[in-house]
Design a protein around this nucleic acid. Structure first.
Length: 215
DNA sequence: GTTGAGCGTT
């Protein structure tokens, strides 16, 4: 048991990970570090990115060293507005937290009645969904776990809507031979609109306020 | 350029 005091890298069981949801897509780990570091000793912050696009998925993982600091961060930073979005901080289902954490969702399976009519997956996703959206066979050819496809499916929903609206809008413009004068003015350089105004944003320095006051 | 329920890399 005694490893001469050398425990190696910080194990997960020795740290407490927090899940930060509702994070803006452009929020980086550095931004979160500036907030969470004030509440305690942050070991590391990881922001999972999409394997295809590489963009942030909208959530991050903040790993604290002590539970009391992590709990304080949840109580203080939970609901705080970051980058224009109110983030949601809660314990992640990982490490020692997964055994005790009841926030967000029930991890235990005791709430699963067997006698009652079980409710299987009401929504069944076929690969046709991906093909319908125009995805290549390269992606569906790979064997991903159900969890992975589930996540990808949820993410693709927003993209699907965006592409659909964009396509419909374009088709409408195309079909419409006669363009309304408003459209012409909007796309005409003569009509200076605020949309093309110089986005000179004053670099407002961040005010280092102690979000987590010392006990 | 967009979107918004959730659980992750070495």
């Amino acid at each position: 048991m005694s490893r001469l005091g050398r425990y190696g890298p910080p194990a997960v069981r020795d740290s407490y990970s927090l899940l930060v949801l509702n994070v803006s897509f452009r929020t980086t780990a550095d931004d979160l570090l500036a907030l969470f570091d004030r509440c305690g000793e942050v070991l590391d912050i990881r922001i999972p990115r999409d394997r295809r696009t590489g963009d942030s998925r909208g959530f991050a993982f903040v790993r604290y060293k002590y539970e009391d600091e992590a709990q304080k961060a949840v109580d203080k930073l939970d609901g705080r507005t970051v980058d224009g979005r109110d983030i949601m901080v809660q314990f992640a289902k990982y490490g020692p937290n997964a055994e005790r954490i009841h926030k967000g969702r029930i991890v235990e399976e005791i709430s699963k009645p067997k006698g009652r009519s079980r409710s299987p997956s009401p929504k069944r996703r076929y690969r046709a969904d991906y093909r319908d959206r125009g995805y290549r066979d390269d992606y569906r050819d790979r064997h991903y776990p159900d969890d992975y496809q589930d996540r990808e499916y949820r993410r693709s929903r927003s993209i699907e809507r965006y592409e659909r609206e964009r396509y419909q809008e374009k088709g409408y413009r195309r079909r419409s031979r006669s363009i309304s004068p408003d459209y012409d003015r909007r796309h005409r350089k003569n009509g200076s609109y605020s949309l093309t105004a110089s986005p000179s944003r004053p670099r407002d320095e961040r005010s280092p306020r102690s979000r987590c006051p010392s006990t």
